[in-house]
Design a protein around this nucleic acid. Sequence first.
DNA 1: ACGGGATATCAAGGTTTTCTCAAGTCATAG
DNA 2: CTATGACTTGAGAAAACCTTGATATCCCGT
Lengths: 226, 226
Amino acid sequence: MARIILIEDDIEIRRLVADALAAEGHDVETAATAMTGLELGIRNTPDLVIMDLGLPDLDGNELLRMIRAISSVPVMVITARGADEAVVRTLDAGADDYLIKPFSVAQLLARSRALLRRGGLAEEASRITVGGLVIDISAREATLDGTTLDLSPKEFDLLRSLAERQGEVVSKRELLAEVWREPYGGSDRTVDVHLSWLRKKLGETAAEPRYLKTIHGVGVKLVLPD
Amino acid sequence: MARIILIEDDIEIRRLVADALAAEGHDVETAATAMTGLELGIRNTPDLVIMDLGLPDLDGNELLRMIRAISSVPVMVITARGADEAVVRTLDAGADDYLIKPFSVAQLLARSRALLRRGGLAEEASRITVGGLVIDISAREATLDGTTLDLSPKEFDLLRSLAERQGEVVSKRELLAEVWREPYGGSDRTVDVHLSWLRKKLGETAAEPRYLKTIHGVGVKLVLPD
DNA sequence: ACGGGATATCAAGGTTTTCTCAAGTCATAG
DNA sequence: CTATGACTTGAGAAAACCTTGATATCCCGT
């Protein structure tokens, strides 16, 4: 469920699109002019804006620029103007997609899904996925190919620290700082041992790593298996 | 400057699009089949993938799903199939944009700009590209034409030092200082040996260099192959 | 074409880093 | 109080890596 602002002066199209989006479970607010649309947008931090270019009170590209000046919300433009130069100009003014009237509602919905998927929907990064590995941070639970792993606290923290920087090499000292929170004290062996246990539970060995690759002399990284 | 992978079997379109993207300053890698495209290192975090749906070896939607299983890179689909259901299906399979042939190159460029803009084009500095050689510094990984090279620490540091000054001749003494970090101590032979190993892994010899050219009496430089 | 200096490559030896086991501590639940 | 699970540490073995010296080869000025 997302908040969507629809700015369109043609009442038929407005209703058609608004109803279709509402049927998908979204919360749609409509406006017939640029000015009312802007007012809606400013106080509502929407997940997506769908707007017509041919509005009565303001040029569409002008409105687009005003939106971009204050927000990075995804914007889809729907308009009758189909000339290439118009499309290019509008996309370069900050639009994320451009749909030419008459359009199919199904396609408009699919395109809005694509835009929302990309991050209009503000999501908590409370879950990290790396191949068959899913790490649910708030639930403090990790699953591998569907089966839950029985991890000790330190093992989970270690895996999470690595997952938060997926693909990056992390040194043992950094891991000690992040997981153990001891500037001194900790020894690298501790990390080694926990890593070894983690690998065993992930069904891999140091010699045949799938997820946990060690970079000799540098550290470890969590990667996608081949 | 972004790294873009283009998967398209029609040679004319491939060239047209690749040239246009290259003219925008992007680094374009092309493939004619789904398999070569995948090998091209989609796992190696390109900034954008542009792909045809009608590939000879694999259904486009299938390829899309394979890409989505391992990466969240933005994907633009270009195809002749324009039916609404096809568009919806592909967008829901994970595509970010869908362009129907024949399309205008200007519009394709504008749409890729829009996708790249959203993608953040983030860790630009953490990656260096020289022809088919890609050096990912934070992952401490180097790939040649899509296949990852198994480099030792010193080999990687050496390659990286040279890549950071691509095209410039670097003396052994400078390399000793940068990679070995010992004002004295190191001998030039050490550099020679590591260079030799590096060449072997890059699939070249000192007599037939492709990337690593030695300038007699001066040093070495990393260059684009002919 | 020749000689001296620079570079390439190989094999051997030595060093550092990583991996894993087992022993021991500590806290907690029963 | 005991049993269990979690964690730390040290030590040895294994693996990966680096350096060195020797020899062959190449480059360049004479």
